[in-house]
Amino acid sequence: MTESENRDYNEFIKGIWRDNPVFVQVLGMCPMLAVTNSAINAIAMGGATLFVLVGSSFLVAAFKKWIPKQVRISCFIIIIATFVTIADYTLLALVPVVHKELGAFIPLIVANCMILGRQEAFASKNTVRLAVMDALGMSTGFVIALFTLGAVREILGAGSLFGIDLFGAAWEPWVIMILPPGGFLTLGLILLVFNWMTQRKQMFMEKVAEAQRSDS
């Protein structure tokens, strides 16, 4: 791998695990919780966010020289809002059923702080190529997070995945999981697992460091 390919790869991969927008940075929570009562809704929301984030990162990185510093936030927001409008009307034309389910939450992608955060922190300071890689990585991480939450909630709350029945008639669905409290509880528990894994990794690294010290 050449150096620039390596850099691309790094920018892409960091959003998936190390800097995962949802599990690590705790950004973009509103759409995250609101539309994840089924796996298919989660995927649709993730797809729309991916489109908006990649599109606006591309434009912001391409126009960064012409955007005056003082009004940059407003410019970013207008660019984001344009892409959100495109995504809104595209979903309405292609999959009206899903669009109806997601309802007002598609326009609300504008207020997703993760998207504005990436423009401010990354796209406005880097080349188009790196900005797109970063946006792709971040939104893939976001899609994975949405899908995890949506799948857990749908399996427990409705006993199905993508609408396909998993457990048969004997399964008593945990209705609470597809209702609002289930969203908070599931995300809280997933964050707990993440904390636990980070803590274990830290303890492991400390042990390694200690072993190295005692060796020398």
């Binding site: 609002p180 409290p181 908070f184 509880l185 995300l187 809280g188 528990l189 707990l192 904390n195």
Partner: peptide, 12 residues
Amino acid sequence: TAMNLIIAGILS
């Protein structure tokens, strides 16, 4: 955050 989310779930 994990605890806050669980508290929020119970409030909800």
